[in-house]
Amino acid sequence: MATIFTAWQGVKGRIEAALQRPRHGGGEVDLLAVSKTFPAEAVRELYDAGQRAFGENYVQELVTKAAQLVDLPELAWHFIGPLQSNKTRPVAEIASWVHTVDRLKIAERLSMQRPPQLAPLNVCIQVNVSGEASKSGVTPELAAALALAVAKLPRLRLRGLMCIPEPTGDDERLTAQFATLRQLKEDLEREGLALDTLSMGMSADLELAIQEGATMVRVGTALFGART
């Protein structure tokens, strides 16, 4: 407990320090603990420390952990991995957020499959800001059309945009990619969409993301350690 609590406090300290520097936007930054590949016991330990939002990349892992941790009433699951259209139902039924909507078909299935007794499913449009062929996400040029279409769907609430930048040690390139997402959000707000979320920044680059306006950072390694 001491180790994971210390790591959690350290990450929260990094976020607070980044918020003191000049940055785009305002308000708080939420921490999403990325628990993929780590056991349910690690999630429970961090929940006991005070963390409530957890991110999973794989549908079956989400289903398994949600069943194991059903007794934690305030736990909020965020799905942050690529989502195939034939696997949307369990995500629509379990998750509070989906960060990786990159085509209208996925959004339509999530909308149709979201149980009506649950609150609307919070969703973000994933944008491929690096242009890498290996990355999921809609291109920046097509992001606005997708966002406007998703915003009209029932039982979904479009919250904002998400990106996974190119893995590079070049801070200028990273900053430019985060800035692309921020500028897209600002463009969509001018078109009338009420967006409040920029999901960007991970263990190695959360300070740069916060500088460019991130409102949610997705952190795994700095909390749980290296994945095997």
Results as ranks from 00 to 15, higher is better:
Pro140Glu: 04
Gly192Asp: 04
Leu184Glu: 04
Val150Arg: 03
Leu206Val: 11
Leu181Ser: 01
Leu161Trp: 03
Gly160Met: 04
Glu74Tyr: 09
Arg89Gln: 14
Leu104Val: 10
Glu108Cys: 04
Arg155Gly: 02
Leu195Thr: 08
Glu189Lys: 10
Thr215Glu: 06
His78Glu: 11
Leu19Tyr: 08
Ala17His: 13
Glu16Gly: 08
Pro165Phe: 14
Pro73Ser: 14
Ile4Ser: 11
Val123Met: 10
Gly13Asn: 15
His99Pro: 15
Asp196Ser: 14
Gly27Asn: 07
Thr139His: 01
Met200Lys: 07
Thr168Arg: 06
Met162Glu: 01
Ala176Gln: 14
Met162Gln: 05
Gln20His: 06
Ala53Thr: 12
Leu75Ile: 15
Ile80Cys: 06
Thr168Phe: 02
Pro82Lys: 03
Asp30Pro: 01
Arg21Gly: 01
Phe178Ile: 08
Leu62Tyr: 06
Pro165Ser: 14
Cys124Lys: 09
Pro116Tyr: 08
Thr37Leu: 07
Met112Ile: 01
Val129Ile: 12
Gln113Arg: 12
Lys12Gln: 15
Ala145Met: 04
Arg14Met: 09
Met1Asp: 11
Arg89Cys: 08
Glu186Ala: 12
Leu161Thr: 08
Ala66Lys: 09
Phe5Arg: 15
Gln9Met: 15
Ile80Asp: 04
Ala66Thr: 14
Asp205Glu: 09
Leu46Ala: 11
Glu74Met: 10
Leu156Arg: 01
Arg21Met: 10
Met162Gly: 03
Gln68Glu: 14
Lys12Thr: 11
Ala2Arg: 15
Lys36Cys: 04
Val129Trp: 05
Lys135Glu: 02
Arg182Ile: 05
Leu198Trp: 05
Gln183Phe: 05
Ala194Tyr: 00
